[in-house]
Simulated scan of single mutants.
Amino acid sequence: MTFVDFVAQVFGGEELGRVSTEDGLIGHGEIRVGDTVVPAFDRHADWPRMPSLLRVFVADPFGNIWWGVSYVEDVSEAEMWRRRRDPVYEAIRVVQETLDAELSGQAHGRSSAPVRAIS
């Protein structure tokens, strides 16, 4: 059972989607619980265990990591993959690597490229 499955089951939520990564983890998932969409992703084994992770990315002077997300638009899966090739979305890789470096304590973080779902 993944974290996404757990949240959906325990809170009576509905999984809206997930993006698997090349290392087999969930790079991004969304669960609707009531009128709230909860984003989630798998932790890497070398990240510290935490009770939760709010997706806001800003490093503050207290050592906290914040990730901010907001809804922009719904897009089809085909459009998502088209945009993924656009260089402007390179920032996503940088965010993933920076978060991983902070949580793992490594000098350089990892990012995981998404893989298409097998139909």
Rank of each mutant, 00 (worst) to 15 (best):
F3T: 12
F6E: 15
F6C: 01
V7M: 09
A8N: 04
V10F: 11
F11T: 02
G12K: 04
E15A: 08
L16F: 09
G17W: 07
G17H: 13
G17Y: 06
S20T: 02
T21H: 02
D23C: 04
I26H: 02
G27R: 11
H28K: 05
G29Y: 15
E30F: 15
I31R: 14
I31N: 15
I31K: 12
R32L: 11
R32G: 03
R32N: 05
G34S: 01
V38R: 05
H44S: 14
D46F: 02
W47V: 00
W47Q: 04
W47A: 01
M50I: 09
S52C: 06
S52P: 01
S52Y: 08
S52I: 05
L54I: 09
V56I: 06
F57E: 11
V58E: 11
A59L: 13
A59P: 11
D60Y: 01
D60R: 08
G68M: 03
G68V: 09
V69R: 13
S70D: 15
S76K: 01
E77K: 09
E77W: 09
E77C: 12
A78M: 10
E79T: 15
E79M: 08
W81V: 13
R82K: 07
R82P: 00
R82T: 08
R83E: 09
R85Q: 05
R85M: 06
E90L: 06
E97A: 11
T98S: 12
L99E: 14
A101M: 01
A101Y: 01
E102D: 02
S104V: 03
G105I: 05
Q106F: 01
A107N: 01
H108T: 10
G109Q: 07
G109P: 12
R110N: 12
S111I: 00
S112M: 12
P114A: 05
P114R: 03
A117G: 10
I118G: 08
I118L: 07
S119G: 09
